[in-house]
Nucleic acid binder design. Structure first.
Lengths: 120, 120
DNA sequence: ATACTGTATGCAACTCATTGCATATAGCGA
DNA sequence: TCGCTATATGCAATGAGTTGCATACAGTAT
């Protein structure tokens, strides 16, 4: 079928055309993030985040990696980064997220503090 | 609001994530086309085509031009061509459309016949 | 005027994704 | 083993877009 090209494109576009999923992908294009991180950024219930992550995962757009209790997600489809750049512009620097408890965020907060100290 | 960027992107993506609209835009990126032309290509009722054209028009993605009874539509937003190239690949040559009655199609059919004659 | 053709509009019915929430699972530490 | 935290799943209710169809409008020609 020739119109498989259309169907495939539509599946991809429809996945991006969603507030929560678009924000998730926008965060992930800056690098890995755990669920609690995404939850803190979106300010929505955790099951809701997991639900959208499942949709994106089953579509092959993201992949996951477990590290203890935490599961880190990342982009798995390079088309996504291109599309995001097209519709959102280049990736922006991560805005500070109100209290995310994951170890990675703790590190970031620490290193940021250190940076400030060093510069001063 | 910062998330106006997201909303605007979502509106655009959602407009493309639709079988009829995506095909219409894919045809229009090859150049102008009248409604009867699109109708013949999609093989759907004419009111259905006009309806989707209205959606695209009100979103500013396409513009129109009247010529007698015929109304020719064309892309009006250059982001669309970029996005289509991203998700569909480069524009393909127009496949022959089963009997479209508009003058432009008649011309095309004629010139194609002439071409064949010349080559032979 | 009238008839005809190309295109647009309005609206109801239906479909399907979205969302909320209760609950289940997985790993870790005591 | 038990409790705790991070994450996942299932399912029902809601809601928004899609689709079909009857009809209206706009040019053109006779």
């Amino acid at each position: 079928m020739e119109n498989e090209r259309y169907e495939s494109a539509i599946r991809l576009l429809a996945l991006l055309a969603h507030p929560a999923r678009l924000r998730i992908l926008d965060i992930l294009r800056r690098g890995e993030a755990c669920v609690c991180h995404l939850q803190a950024a979106l300010e929505v219930p955790q099951p809701y985040v997991s639900q959208q992550l499942r949709v994106l995962r089953e579509a092959g757009l993201i992949s996951q990696r477990r590290e203890g209790l935490f599961i880190y997600y990342r982009l798995a489809d390079e088309r996504v980064a291109h599309l995001l750049a097209e519709v959102l512009g280049p990736a922006t620097v991560e805005a500070p997220i109100p209290h995310c408890a994951c170890p990675r965020c703790q590190e970031t907060h620490l290193s940021q503090s250190f940076c400030l100290v060093e510069v001063n």
